[in-house]
Amino acid sequence: MDCLFLPADSPARLDADTPVYWLPKQGAGRWLRLDECAAAAQGAISLVLPAEACSFFAVSLPTRKARWMQQALAYVAEELLAENVDELHLALGETLADGRQRVVAIGRQRLGDWLAQLRELGLPIVAVHVDADLLPRDATQLLFLGERGLLGGAGETRLVFASRDWPALAGHCPPPWHAQGSEAEPPVPLEDYRPLDDPYAFLAGNRATAVNLAQGEFAVETGSTGLGYWKPLFAVVGLILLVQPGFNLVQAWYFQRQGDAYAEASQALYRELFPEDVRIVNLRAQFDDHLAQRSGGQAGFLRLLEHTAGALEDGIPVTIGQLDYNQDRGDLALQLQAMDFATLETLRRRLGESGQSVQLGSASREGDGVSARVVIGG
């Protein structure tokens, strides 16, 4: 697809006159204004951001389940970043040799504004990469674009630097060093240097292995249109509809038996690990609580907070006036206001259904309502 490279000094507001490097899927690349790119575009476009706009690091995540990875990523990244993690878009990349996962971070507002502005100009962006991350993923890779240098390769480091500063960086980068550049000669002495006719085309050729920032809220669905494209799919769907009812019955019977077997095995293991729990209401929630009690700290707080939010999601009309978490005891105390005592009892019952220890005390009437202190966990 066509590629659009934003320059290192890209403004916060992209308009029709903003200069960018345009690399069509066919033909030579050149510097154009954005309105000229929109006129030349022939379909989906891959946007390449300057490394100056992003941060790069690697993290060890405690889960590989897709639905939990973003939540775990935000929690782990908060320890590494000086910025507010809620204001960042975090894109997950590949797993490194040491088991950690590559991460690219960029301001959520900045990325959202750029994408919206480009689409307003008629540029359909479907993929987002970073120039330093487009270098080949072996050894230490360098690309010199005049006075601007890019560092990448197999390691976690992605860096933009002044070309003249490479000698000072060299000692921190493991050899071998593979260097490419836009000039016939490197800006600093290098043994392995290859001049490139179009360094941007060299970067674009490595998009398949680079991190695509179009994830989560910035994910883009692509597809072709036209009846001819869908004909094979219609044929397959027709065949599936003929055999599906019988297959569903067999599959449902099989999975029911498998599920019952796994449930029995899980309960047996749980009773073996936690014999003091004589009543199992929600196996997953109770097991998570035991883990939280052993890990303590913020993880225990977040888990209790999640249970509280789950109990309130049906719209129980209560107001939380104060919230206190005791790490030593592992309990969460809530000062609540409600219309009547029945509402408080409903909430207490809902919290208990998740397997939590719930204590309701210090209830008193205040004006037209009631207030009480509820302690969860511990």
Results as ranks from 00 to 15, higher is better:
Arg303Val: 00
Gly330Tyr: 04
Arg137Pro: 01
Asn206Glu: 11
Ala139Ser: 14
Thr63Leu: 07
Arg13Tyr: 06
Leu121Cys: 05
Gly378Cys: 03
Ala28Met: 11
Gly146His: 02
Gly171Ser: 15
Val20Ile: 10
Asp17Glu: 08
Asp368Lys: 12
His129Gln: 01
Tyr229Leu: 07
Cys37Glu: 01
Trp22Asp: 04
Ala8Ile: 13
Leu291Ile: 15
Pro317Leu: 09
Leu121Ala: 10
Leu88Arg: 02
Leu14Tyr: 03
Val375Cys: 04
Asp9Phe: 10
Ala16Lys: 09
Asn84Ser: 05
Ile125Met: 10
Leu14Ile: 08
Gly228Asp: 12
Leu323Cys: 11
Gln356Ile: 04
Leu47Val: 12
Arg33Tyr: 01
Leu151Phe: 03
Ala39Asp: 12
Arg148Trp: 10
Leu61Thr: 10
Leu249Gly: 06
Gln335Met: 03
Phe218Thr: 01
Phe202Ile: 03
Asp35Arg: 15
Met69Thr: 13
Glu366His: 12
Arg194His: 14
Ala51Arg: 13
Leu135His: 06
Leu49Gln: 07
Ala97Gln: 10
Leu47Glu: 09
Glu217Cys: 01
Asp86Ala: 14
Val128Asn: 00
Leu34Ser: 08
Leu203Tyr: 04
Arg348Leu: 00
Asn212Glu: 00
Gln298His: 10
Val76Pro: 04
Phe341Glu: 05
Phe202Asn: 00
Gly297Lys: 02
Gly378Lys: 11
Gly369Cys: 01
Gln180Thr: 07
Asp331Ser: 13
Asp15Thr: 09
Pro50Gly: 11
Asp98Gly: 11
His129Met: 04
Leu332Gln: 00
His178Ala: 06
Val374Ser: 02
Gln286Ala: 11
Arg64Trp: 06
Gly297Ala: 08
Val104Ala: 00
Thr343His: 03
Leu304Thr: 09
Ala170Asn: 04
Leu273Val: 07
Ser60Tyr: 10
Gln337Gly: 11
Pro187Trp: 02
Glu185Gln: 13
Pro7Met: 06
Glu156Pro: 10
Phe202Arg: 02
Val104Lys: 00
Gln337Cys: 03
Pro245Thr: 10
Gly149Ser: 07
Leu134Met: 08
Thr140Trp: 06
Asp192Thr: 12
Ala139Gly: 14
Val374Asn: 01
Arg194Asn: 10
Gln327Tyr: 04
Pro275Met: 07
Pro189Gly: 08
Leu47Phe: 11
Glu276Gly: 10
Phe218Asp: 00
Glu52His: 15
Pro124Trp: 02
Tyr193Pro: 09
Glu306Met: 13
Asp331Tyr: 07
Leu88Asp: 00
Asp197Leu: 15
Ala363Trp: 02
Trp177Gln: 02
Leu190Trp: 12
Asp9Ile: 10
Tyr200Cys: 08
Val220Cys: 12
Glu79Tyr: 13
Gly146Lys: 03
Leu241Arg: 15
Phe287Arg: 14
Ala235Arg: 15
Trp31Ala: 09
Gly171Asp: 15
Leu312Asp: 09
Arg303Glu: 01
Asp277Gln: 10
Arg294Ile: 03
Asp368Val: 05
Asn206Val: 04
Ala154Asn: 02
Ala72His: 08
Leu151Asn: 00
Thr18Ile: 07
Ala74Asp: 05
Arg207Tyr: 05
Val243Ala: 13
Ala184Gln: 12
Asn282Phe: 03
Val278Gly: 02
Ile376Cys: 01
Ala39Pro: 04
Gly155His: 08
Gln256Phe: 12
His89Phe: 04
Glu272Thr: 15
Ser357Lys: 13
Ser364Asp: 00
